[in-house]
């Protein structure tokens, strides 16, 4: 019972990421605003109720029609406060939405009712994610079935995991330890147990953990093998002589489409081009690629993306 009492008395959740303290500062400011206005209204109501309580049934207080000055005052002041909170919250949201460029990348696939996580070096985990402390981690996420939501309260991050597209979020853990991972979007029967833990480790320990498990094929290597098995490489030749464009150095670039529009080659575009190749054709190439819908799983899609990402300009796949 006692640990529960002390737990219950702790009113602020663990702060274990770079943004947690900033979110909490804003949260506390909002608490202060709430306490102030609730207290003010409460005080006025109580004071008026006592001071002007009806003493005789014949009382007919004089009418007061209102006051333009007061109306302006209690419109403009709350508006000012609201706008200040808006700016603060938006700035912080902008920070939370933008992963640092150097972040290590983890791929997440949600499905009823588990989380599948893949490290760039190929390690796979279920409902558990091991990460090093003090290093930004970017999550690229999708779902195999319904909408889920990746939520780590100690990091103050949450992002829905939506079937049919990639969403992302990021964090940089600041404290080693184990933290709850929850699914925050209702996803069916076992929604409440679709969770696990994030294990934050010292970098050296993380390296040991990485090498400790069963030897894994790195994601780009797995993607390369798949690229050959699905015969992608018969058209997407690295020297550009194939019927499809070479994919070397393409990731992150802006491509011109046959329709005249441009598109940034990101995870979502690569995914769409595999599943629905006719949607956005790169200019200069015939629309002949067949769809691979139903032939590749979400996990394999992520492997292919990791492979395409690894194809740098010198033509060498970096593992």
């Amino acid at each position: 019972m006692w640990p529960q009492v002390t737990q219950a008395l702790r009113l602020v959740p663990e702060q274990a990421s770079t943004v947690a303290g900033q979110v909490d500062a804003l949260f506390l400011f909002l608490v202060a605003i709430t306490v102030f206005f609730t207290g003010l209204i409460f005080l006025l109501v109580v004071v008026f109720a006592l001071k002007y309580r009806r003493r005789s049934d014949d009382e007919r207080p004089k009418a007061i029609h209102g006051s333009l000055v007061l109306e302006a005052f209690w419109t403009v002041v709350p508006l000012g406060i609201a706008l200040a909170i808006f700016v603060w919250g938006t700035y912080l949201y902008y920070v939370i939405s933008r992963p640092p460029a150097a972040a290590m990348e983890i791929y997440v696939v949600g499905k009823q009712w588990m989380w599948k996580l893949q490290h760039p070096t190929g390690q796979r985990e279920i409902n558990e994610l091991h990460v090093p402390v003090n290093r930004p981690v970017r999550l690229t996420m999708t779902s195999e079935d319904v909408i889920h939501s990746f939520y780590v309260p100690a990091f103050r991050i949450k992002a829905d995991v939506v079937p049919g597209k990639y969403t992302s979020t990021w964090f940089e853990a600041t404290k080693t330890g184990e933290y709850h991972l929850f699914c925050a979007e209702y996803c069916g029967t076992s929604h409440a147990v679709m969770g696990g833990r994030i294990v934050v480790m010292e970098p050296a320990e993380y390296e040991r953990w990485l090498t400790g498990g069963a030897s894994a094929e790195s994601l780009p290597a797995a993607g390369e093998a798949l690229f050959a098995r699905l015969a992608c490489n018969t058209c997407h030749k690295s020297d550009g002589s194939g019927r499809g464009p070479s994919l070397v150095g393409k990731f992150g670039k802006t491509e011109r489409l046959a329709s005249g529009e441009t598109v940034v080659v990101d995870e979502s575009y690569v995914r769409e081009s595999i599943l629905n190749p006719q949607a956005k054709i790169t200019t200069g190439y015939p629309p002949i690629m067949p769809t691979f819908k139903g032939l590749v799983t979400e996990d394999q899609l992520l492997q292919l993306i990791a492979y395409i990402k690894s194809l740098k300009m010198d033509g060498q796949a970096k593992p």
């Binding site: 943004v19 979110v23 991050i157 949450k158």
Partner: peptide, 9 residues
């Protein structure tokens, strides 16, 4: 809840 960064949490 209208405050973006707080709502995320």
């Amino acid at each position: 809840l209208a405050t973006l960064a707080v709502d995320v949490h």
